[in-house]
Structure formats: structure tokens, C-alpha cells
Design a binder for these strands. Structure first.
Length: 218
DNA sequence: GCAAAGATTTGCT
DNA sequence: GCAAATCTTTGCC
């Protein structure tokens, strides 16, 4: 499944479930990053401490910090000598929605606060009120929001997502409603140059309400 | 050893 | 529509 060519694996991930403890959601939008030659991929510099999971076995997590604040989840694909991964860009919440809101509040509250220090209660309450108003379909509608809603940490990078005994895992969902797949260029990769940025390596469930906001639901 | 940029999100103009 | 927030990684000196 995930050892298949990355674009096939990306299609297979759509509709699957991402589970973390009591939280579960359906993957509705992904992006493929394929090989060292891909100028948009973190693997373009070769193997580093951060991207090491991309050079490992398929089905493992690659979690990285972007813009100094957002944690993004990838699922590693292809053989260990072929660095590739699929970025989970948006998820439809299915279970554990309260835990997702709690995690988003906690993520934002600890931002900029030294580890181990309690966040300011007033600021915490302000964040809480805002997150409580976020509609369900926006809880994990973006790669950074998936990381926040599922409470992912850099320490989760490298974990095996195919281990059925793990609290953080992927599950197939035979009961998922049927859907059509749409392919578009990837988001936010203009730095890679026109040729790489134009490749239709973003896949999403057509018309799904939980598509990432930045991408504009198309 | 230091400067620059980033697979984003949010809020203000 | 634009810029700030925030910090790790990369790349050059």
C-alpha cells in the first residue's frame, strides 16, 4: 500500500483514518513529495537529522516544525533508498472532537512559553473562547491544524503508523462514503521553481467541506 | 559561528 | 491584502 509509488499511496490515504488515542479523523487532502530531485521536498538536501524518517521504511511518520510554530505530519512512502512522503493537509474530525479542541488550545497556549512554565490564565481563556467557536469542519483543515488538533510533537517523528497496537496510527476505512479524487498543484512551494510547483501532486476529496482553508477548497 | 528562509496561520489594515 | 509570530535547519563565511 504505502510502499507503492507515492502518488498511488497518496490516493490510498484519502478516505483512510488517522487515529491518536480517542481522536480519529478522515484524511481528505494530501500532498506528495517524491525523491531527492523534487525541489520542493525536504529530501532535496539529502539525508539530515530532521528528514531521516523519509529515508526509512514506508508507513512511518515524518513530523517537522515549519515557520517555528506548526507541526506537520507526513506519511513516509516507497523504499528506504527512495526518500518520499505524503503530507497530511486536512482531516475531517470523526471522534474525540473535544480532545482536538483541547489540543489546539494547548498548542497555542504553550507557544512562546518556556517548557514547564504555566501559560497565562487570561490568555489561555481567550484562546479557549476562540477555539470553541471554530466549526467542526475547520478543526483540522490545514497541515498545521492537523498537527495541533492531534497534539503531534517532533518526538512523534519516525513512529510506525501501521502498528495496530500504537496509539498513533493509520486505519483503512471500508465504510467510508465513495468519493472522487481531484489533483492540483501543491500549496506554498513556489520556492521550488515553476516546473516543480506546477506538478499536480496535491490530491483531495472532491467537494469535501474540510479541505484546508489556505488552499481555498478547490 | 551567523544570517536567511520556510510544505502556515492569524489578525489587522 | 499584507505582515507578524517564532525557531529549526540550511548554507555560507
Amino acid at each position: 500500500l504505502l510502499g507503492a509509488p507515492t502518488l498511488e499511496a497518496a490516493g490510498a490515504l484519502l478516505g483512510a483514518r488517522l487515529v491518536h488515542g480517542e481522536r480519529a479523523g478522515r484524511i481528505v487532502e494530501v500532498e506528495a513529495y517524491i525523491g531527492r530531485a523534487d525541489r520542493a521536498s525536504h529530501a532535496r538536501f539529502g539525508r539530515t537529522e530532521r528528514n531521516a524518517p523519509m529515508f526509512g521504511p514506508p508507513g512511518h511518520a515524518y513530523v517537522y516544525l515549519v515557520y517555528g510554530m506548526h507541526r506537520c505530519l507526513n506519511v513516509v512512502t516507497e523504499a528506504p533508498d527512495a526518500p518520499a512522503a505524503v503530507l497530511i493537509r486536512a482531516v475531517e474530525p470523526l471522534a474525540g472532537l473535544c480532545a482536538m479542541r483541547d489540543a489546539r488550545v494547548a498548542t497555542e497556549a504553550t507557544r512562546g512559553v518556556p517548557a514547564g512554565l504555566a501559560p497565562d490564565p487570561v490568555r489561555l481563556e481567550s484562546i479557549r473562547r476562540r477555539i470553541d467557536r471554530v466549526p467542526e469542519h475547520r478543526l483540522a483543515a490545514g497541515p498545521g491544524l492537523v498537527g495541533a488538533a492531534f497534539g503531534l510533537d517532533l518526538a512523534d517523528s519516525g513512529r510506525d503508523l501501521l502498528d495496530p497496537g500504537s496509539d498513533l496510527r493509520l486505519e483503512e476505512d471500508p465504510g467510508a462514503p465513495p468519493f472522487s479524487i481531484v489533483r492540483t498543484p501543491r500549496i506554498g512551494v513556489a520556492y521550488a521553481g515553476p516546473e516543480w510547483a506546477a506538478l499536480p501532486w496535491r490530491l483531495l476529496i472532491e467537494g469535501h467541506p474540510c479541505i484546508s482553508v489556505k488552499a481555498g477548497r478547490r
